[in-house]
């Protein structure tokens, strides 16, 4: 299992880029990926199926204190905030919504930044919200890598644009480029 961890946050219009990114990853991809996607309902079953159907890695919805296993993609459950509890586990909370969202990307990214520091790779995709920027800034401050989907290629460009304007992006990339970059980390 690599020391690097990948955190991907998205909102409206993020399922398509997520599929593009994940579909090119091999079964032995050894960076743990955590996905956090804003959704209206609390039931993620169909989203899990959609994501699982396009990639070779196992996709799991996170339970409280879930202990991470290699070659797996973890998805934040709806209705809960998600934090990185320590290097091998998560915790959940029903604290009030942030930016009208629970889960909020900022909270996950910030706890990931503090836990993984320079080994944290945070990716922000399409969305119509300002969630995520603060989290990316924290990842950056802690020496991690921050990637934002290019607004021109995002179905809804508000979230990427805000992040870029506030200086939160180390790199601005297309979904294809993001997956190439992730593959470079897979050794």
């Amino acid at each position: 299992m690599s020391d690097f961890r990948v955190f991907i946050g998205g909102s409206a219009g993020s399922i398509a880029p997520i599929k593009t990114i994940l579909s090119s990853l091999p079964t032995d991809f050894n960076l743990i990926i955590t996905l956090i996607i804003h959704s209206s309902g609390d039931n993620n079953t169909s989203m899990i199926e959609a994501i699982a159907s396009c990639c070779t890695l196992t996709v799991i919805e996170i339970s409280d204190k879930e202990i991470v296993k290699p070659n797996t993609i973890y998805l934040a459950p709806g209705g809960y905030h998600l934090y990185v509890e320590n290097i091998n586990s998560y915790s959940l909370s029903v604290d009030k919504k942030e930016h009208y969202c629970r889960p909020a990307i900022d909270l996950l990214f910030t706890s990931a930044a503090e836990t993984f520091g320079k080994h944290c790779i945070a990716i922000l995709l399409s969305g119509a919200n300002e969630d995520g920027t603060e989290g990316l800034l924290n990842v950056k401050r802690h020496g991690g890598l921050t990637i934002v989907q290019s607004p021109e290629l995002s179905q809804v460009s508000i979230m990427p644009k805000i992040a870029i304007e506030r200086g939160a992006a180390t790199k601005v990339l297309s979904p294809k480029e993001i997956s190439h970059l992730l593959l470079e980390y897979n050794d």
């Binding site: 503090e114 520091g117 320079k118 800034l137 950056k140 401050r141 802690h142 020496g143 870029i164 304007e165 506030r166 200086g167 939160a168």
Partner: peptide, 20 residues
């Protein structure tokens, strides 16, 4: 167009120190 503000990237030692 808003100009991107420079985000200070803390050096590793001061990050560990702050978190500690």
């Amino acid at each position: 167009m808003v100009i991107a503000t420079e985000i200070p990237i803390l050096d590793e030692q001061s990050i560990t120190e702050t978190l500690r």
